[in-house]
Design a protein around this nucleic acid. Structure first.
Length: 428
RNA sequence: GGAGAGGUGGCCGAGUGGCCGAAGGCAACGGUUUGCUAAACCGUCGUAGGGACAAAAUCUCUACCGAGGGUUCAAAUCCCUCCCUCUCCGCCA
């Protein structure tokens, strides 16, 4: 979100930039409200100035033991006018903030213009697709045959779009979490975090989920808590309303959390298996940088997510999302898509984005340079995040890509230490 | 859940109605001096919004002492509601 002053002064520029992505922003309302806000603000401040002067006058008269009734009466009237003007100002600012929070981020210049996912650009591919003598099975079939996935019981105890993993399946999920965390903390320089899984409204607003996407979130009935849809929310908000020291940047965090999503509006899509669930596990990467280094950081962070797939030997491709497919808060996004043999297509397994200062403005996350000269001016950080990776979908990819003719699944070498040395998952 | 205490500038901490955007200290930054991995002294030192200026520098006004209301000519200070933190008791993993 843009601060209201910046918004007023750069309205046309912002509007033009956002034409590159579809948007439904009420620009004329914003312009009108912005101007009204400025006018009313000036009026209120003028009144307050008079009031302050009048009050000082009263104080002076009283000290001099002179009668002050007349001045006091005048100020009393002025105060009523101030209250009216303030009421108007409050309403205008509220209305303006409400629409301002719904303005999406401006895409980076390197992002291709396009209306929808068909305009996305493939950046690169990695790995070789496995070949099969008979048609490869979908992961739910493999998992149920092995007795490590149980969707029937998941539906019984919770409902549709939930999963139960058991035995080697549960262990594989846990192995993936530990492997990813170890890789990112030990080799990629991230600091591990275990955050709350429920957060307040301010945090959700800070990272951009609210106010526009409330219907995508699970919310507690009696308390103002939301279940996190991604660890991006609590981890980015770690530094909400903070001013960071420039020598501590970049800050890099990784967090494993379950994620909770309503998946409203996805009826009929991916109804079977682990692809689209109300609850899934994810290892997230989050970075805070200065403006001049954030795109370098995006490449680096994307590379960190890719390295997980490479170590697991899972074929994938990297997609740069076009303007029409870009998320609300993102300026640029790379999606990592893993190959799923049963579907004969690539499916999203990670999404790595640079939000530039979009979230930092909403959440008020700044940095101040300490070294050097006197310019101790603070500025907004750039925030980034990416999945490193979605754990459930990684498990899907392993089951499908490494399925064997006898129905067993080969365990990727790097995971074996985390699986007690197990090389194959066989029917128990 | 019960009882109590408290939330002030980057940090600590004074301040119970006007001259308080806020003493003092620490930290930071600039400078002076001496010099030896430092001290002393001087100065600067919050954030945001409005206006003036072509713009920067600068000047000026307004707001902010957890948040939001209220009382008053005037609120960090009095009243109400909420949020958060701490202590003790209870309960609990």
């Amino acid at each position: 979100m843009y601060d209201l002053k910046y918004l007023r002064e750069h309205l046309d520029q912002i509007r033009t930039s956002l034409d590159r992505r579809g948007n439904d922003v009420p620009w004329t309302d914003i312009q009108k409200l912005s101007e009204e806000r400025r006018a009313v603000t000036t009026q209120v401040e003028q009144f307050r100035y008079e009031l302050n002067k009048g009050s000082e006058e009263v104080a002076r008269l009283r000290r001099a033991k002179a009668p002050a009734e007349e001045a006091m009466a005048a100020m009393k009237q002025l105060r009523d006018r101030i209250k009216d003007a303030e009421e108007v100002l409050r309403n205008v600012e509220e209305a303006l903030t409400e629409v301002a929070l719904r303005i999406p981020n401006i895409p980076h210049v390197s992002v291709a213009v396009g209306a929808d996912a068909s305009g996305n650009v493939e950046v690169r591919r990695w790995g070789t697709m496995p070949s099969f003598s008979s048609p490869p099975k979908p992961h739910w079939e493999i998992g149920e045959n092995l007795g490590i996935l149980d969707f029937d019981r998941a539906a019984k105890i919770a409902g549709a779009r939930f999963s139960v993993m058991t035995g080697a399946g549960a262990r594989l999920e846990r192995a993936l979490i530990n492997y990813m965390l170890d890789l990112h903390t030990t080799h990629h320089g991230y600091r591990e975090v275990i955050p709350p899984l429920m957060v307040n409204r301010s945090s959700m607003t800070g990272t951009g989920q609210l106010p526009k996407f409330e219907e995508d979130l699970f919310r507690l009935r009696d308390e103002e808590y939301f279940l996190i849809p991604t660890a991006e929310v609590p981890v980015t908000n770690l530094h909400r309303e903070e001013i960071l020291s420039a020598d501590h940047l970049p800050l890099r965090y990784t967090a494993y959390t379950p994620c909770f999503r309503r998946e409203a509006g996805s009826y009929g899509k991916d109804t079977r298996g682990l692809i689209r669930l109300h609850q899934f596990n994810k290892v997230e990467l989050v970075a805070f940088t200065t403006a001049d280094r954030s795109y370098e950081e995006l490449e680096r962070l994307t590379g960190h997510a890719e390295s997980v797939l490479q170590h697991l030997k899972l074929p994938y491709r990297v997609i740069s999302l076009c303007t029409g497919d870009l998320g609300f808060s993102a300026a640029k996004t790379y999606d990592l898509e893993v190959w799923l043999p049963s579907q004969q297509q690539y499916r999203e397994i990670s999404s790595c984005s640079n939000f530039e200062s979009f979230q930092a403005r909403r959440a008020s996350i700044k940095y101040r340079s300490t070294g050097g000269k006197k310019e101790a001016k603070s500025d907004f950080v750039h925030t980034l995040n990416g999945s490193g990776l979605a754990v459930g979908r990684t498990l899907v990819a392993i089951l499908e890509n490494f399925q064997q003719p006898d129905g067993s699944v080969e365990v990727p070498t790097v995971l074996r230490p985390y699986m007690g040395g197990m090389e194959r998952i066989k029917k128990e």
